[in-house]
Amino acid sequence: MIDTDVTGAGVALSLLLVAVAIALSWWQRLGLQRPLAWASVRAVVQLVVVGTALTIVIDEGSPPALWWTWVVVMVLFAAETVHRRAPEVPSARWLALSAYGAASAVTLGVLFGLGVFPLEGRTLVPLSGMMVGNSMNATVLVARRIVEELRDKRPEVEARLALGQPSREAARPYVRAALRTALTPQIETTRAVGLVFLPGAMTGLILAGVEPVDAVLVQVVVMYLVLGAVATTTVTVAVGLARRLFTSDHRLVRLPRPADA
């Protein structure tokens, strides 16, 4: 394998790129110098902590309970993040939890149940991370979009309800539009992969000295994992949320507009 070890000096030199970003912020008077510096330092600390913990979790002798605990903590943290990023969405935390539960069952079930990867800490932890991390934006987007659509188009929705449509049917066009909006970027990314950009997993493997063809095979599986996860989380959230936004007697609940920041 090619020696790709990055030395401490190398990391220090790469800080030059952060300095460039800070200098540009200063030059354009964006006032982002402090957040840029803080984010860069925080990322290093977080990654060092996670790297150290990962060493223990994915060690060959580590117990499976430890791997699964890591996955559960990741899912809990992601659900909390969705709740924080979409405060106007009722029950966002629980919806996200069920969405990640469903996505875990589907994606990990296929990858490990069908033997695509061997079930080990070394595979379970990073793949779960890809699954959760990559579907978070789409999950937040679909939840916020559905609330916005139903709030802004209340007259249309109520016109449908007044015709005797059940709430699920009345909500369908707006839920569908939100799902399309959330899923389209992922489809575009999948379509452009390799032509417009080299994805992270593949880049990492190639930098680590793996043959490009082997890296491609892993990347393809990861890509499909992300696609499946995004579809599962967004649909679970959309269906669950559409139910919560209507009463059992088919009325749209009040959805106050959040105050301007």
Binding site: P155, E156, A159, L161, A162, L163, G164, P173, H250, R251
Partner: peptide, 23 residues
């Protein structure tokens, strides 16, 4: 009205709103 199926009630008592809402 709470004992009547709301979907059936809304077909029996049709409503027209302030703004014409066509799809």
């Amino acid at each position: 009205v709470v004992t009547i199926d709301p979907l059936a009630l809304r077909r029996r008592a049709g409503m027209v709103f302030q703004r014409p809402t066509l799809f």
